[in-house]
Structures are given as structure tokens and as C-alpha cells.
């Protein structure tokens, strides 16, 4: 009440599998990333849905006993490893769930980063953050600014957009710059939350 306090992010809240709402939020947040990555790997939506399901079950199991710790590797690599394992298990139709998808407390994360060949994950992970940031932008920017930016996204030249909206080109660039700065800030925030689930507030 009268003191500064530590905030806990989604990542630390999902450690409690009983926290159903957090799980749903977590699923909603990362679902698209997982499904899109699967599609990029040529996996059918049918299998991709099961990969997602398998991944969530694996996360629930492993996070009960294992705290994801930033000093032991990045979250995106941790998640990647889970996705990769879920895919190989799904494709080999082994859904007995005997072996954990995620490393346990004792297991060291030996070079858990994606191989250079798997740029698909990096691309999708980047896309994931940009989509999240854009979704926030769509809630914050309204009306004309958003319409202007959408036209730019659609590939229209700044001059054409300016003419269409009856503004000068300068103003169009200003909109673009404001959205750019907004997105950059949001992405940085998201990265911080992802990697430092228990960080202190500003």
C-alpha cells in the first residue's frame, strides 16, 4: 500500500498450473506463434493443433517443478525446445507423455539455441512480437492515424496516402514515426517481460 513492490509477470504466474486464467492467457499469447511455426514447417493444422495441445500439457508439467530462469537460457529458446520436441513426438505419434518435453531442474541447458538452419523459429518469434506490439498499437492509435498506417503497410507510397487523406507528406511520415516508436517500445517491453519475468517496475 505504501511501498514499492515487485510485479510478477505472466511467466511467473503460469508456474501455478491451478491458475487457469493465466494458462488461458499464456495459450492465447503463444498459440499463434506455435501454430504459425508449425505451418512454416509444413505441418497440417490438424497436427499443429495437437502440437499446441501437447506443448501446453508439457509446459504445465514442467513448470510445476522447474522455474524458468533467465540465467540458464532465453525463454524463446526454452519454448523452442519444447515446440521442437512436441513436433517430433506428434509426428512420430508417440503421445504417451513419458519423457518431459522440457529440461528438468537438474538438466543443464546445453546450447539450447536453434540451429542456424532453423531460421523459421527466429522469424516466427520476431513476427510474434511484432504482431503483439501491433495489436497494442491498434488499441491505442485510433481513427485516421491507424488508417494512414494501414495504407503504408499495404505498400502505398507516402505521397499517395497523403493525397488520399488530404494531409501533407510530412504528417504521414510523422504518423509512421510515431507508430514505429510505439512498436519499438512495446517490443522492448515484451522482450523484457519474456526474459525477466520477475523484473522490477519502472
Amino acid at each position: 500500500m505504501t511501498r514499492e513492490s515487485t510485479q510478477e509477470s505472466l511467466l511467473s504466474r503460469v508456474r501455478d498450473p491451478a491458475d487457469d486464467a493465466s494458462w488461458r492467457e499464456f495459450d492465447a499469447k503463444y498459440r499463434d506463434l506455435v501454430l504459425r511455426y508449425c505451418r512454416r514447417r509444413g505441418i497440417s493444422p490438424h497436427d499443429a493443433e495437437d502440437v499446441r495441445q501437447l506443448l501446453m500439457m508439457g509446459l504445465a508439467r514442467s513448470m510445476r517443478t522447474f522455474s524458468y530462469r533467465p540465467d540458464r537460457g532465453r525463454f524463446r529458446d526454452y519454448l523452442y525446445r519444447g515446440v521442437r520436441n512436441a513436433i517430433s513426438r506428434q509426428l512420430s505419434r508417440r503421445i504417451d507423455g513419458a519423457a518431459p518435453l522440457f529440461p528438468g531442474e537438474a538438466e543443464e541447458l546445453v546450447d539450447p539455441r536453434p540451429s542456424a538452419a532453423d531460421e523459421a523459429w527466429e522469424t516466427e518469434w520476431r513476427g510474434h512480437h511484432l504482431r503483439q506490439a501491433m495489436a497494442k498499437a491498434e488499441r491505442v492509435f485510433r481513427g485516421r492515424s491507424l488508417d494512414v498506417f494501414r495504407r503504408l503497410l499495404a505498400g502505398d507510397a507516402a505521397g499517395d496516402v497523403a493525397a488520399a487523406f488530404g494531409m501533407n507528406v510530412e504528417a504521414v511520415y510523422k504518423v509512421k514515426e510515431r507508430v514505429r516508436m510505439f512498436l519499438e517500445e512495446r517490443v522492448l517491453e515484451q522482450l523484457a517481460e519474456e526474459e525477466f519475468p520477475d523484473h522490477d517496475g519502472p
Binding site: R126, L130, L153, E184, L191, A192
Partner: peptide, 29 residues
């Protein structure tokens, strides 16, 4: 300290300085 400095990641893909971010955003959407 920013998140970017501390994650130790080479987040060149989040380079908002040039024009690439717009292409990346289009691709992501």
C-alpha cells in the same frame, strides 16, 4: 539498462532504425 542490452541476444531483426521493420511487420501480419 534496456531489455535489449541485457538479454544478450543479437536482436538485429528488431532493428527499428532502418526500413526493414515495416517489411517484417507486413510479413508478420
Amino acid at each position: 539498462m534496456t531489455a535489449r542490452d541485457s538479454s544478450g541476444a543479437s536482436d538485429a531483426e528488431f532493428d527499428f532504425a532502418g526500413e526493414a521493420w515495416l517489411d517484417h511487420l507486413v510479413e508478420a501480419l
